[in-house]
Amino acid sequence: MSASGYAVLAEGVVKRYGGRKGAAEKRALDGFDLAVRPGTVHGLLGPNGAGKTTAVRVLATLLRYDAGRVEVAGLDVAREPRGVRGRIGLTGQYAAVDEVLTGRQNLEMFGRLFHLGRAGARRRAGELLERFDLVEAAGKGVTEYSGGMRRRLDLAASMILAPAVLFLDEPTTGLDPRGRGEVWDAVRALVAGGTTVLLTTQYLDEADRLASHITVIDRGRAIADDSPDGLKDRVGGDRIEVVAAEAADLPAVAKAVGRVAGGGLVVTDDTGRRVHTQVSDRVAALTEVARALQDEGIAVEDIGLRRPSLDDVFLRLTGHGTDLEVAA
């Protein structure tokens, strides 16, 4: 795909905001590195304000950067922005479709602006409406669309050229679970077609489900770069958590939980009644602990599984939580 062999390559990218007219300078990207292999889904995981949108906008030629090197689909972004634009698709943080037009009119308009020609644009719009399950809504104005439908139309618009690299900036933020599922299905189908996807998200489970590789970004810098499993191993994977009804039962509960502990510690937290540990097979662990507790007649107040959250990741990787300033 390129000399580097990566679909996206960013090295030491710096993006400064402000610093003029006395405004304090702010580094939205501060030596940001990223390498995305062709044909994969790569997750860019970070809390609000970490620099995800800035990174995507730099990669998608929308924003100039102050230092570093960026290559997308084999082309230097600063030197050949127009060439890059012909090879990428972008779905921004907010659905960028024309609200007044119908779904079909949107896709045909963008298709013509992608220089497919009139007939080509019409044909492509038809294909994409079918692919994204929007045929029935094709003639309706976008204002009548649900959040999930709007997002799907947005995705379809960014897929008009069947781009080599697709950028998705928080594609499921603000969607209900059904909408999220719809978008996830669409993303999986895209990758099956060979597109490289860079997806930003605030949700570890979303990155886990879709991405084969995850870069964690914090304050404009990549602080971890790993497979989802590798990352979860470092953070501590899924956990089982039992709350004993009586403090006196605690040792027995800890023993039952200890049986499924995947090599990690069994932790009793300071409330004095909650016990948790890391597990590898979630469902089997839950079944086994529940059965053991029942066999011994121990009453529990609560038992459940917990996936590590972005907060857990940050606590482990940076020593601070995700309590950065809340930003756009």
Binding site: M159, A162, G193
Partner: peptide
Amino acid sequence: MTALELNAHTGPERS
């Protein structure tokens, strides 16, 4: 959903 073919669509060459 089925996979989407890559680079199947390019427009006519014009100035």
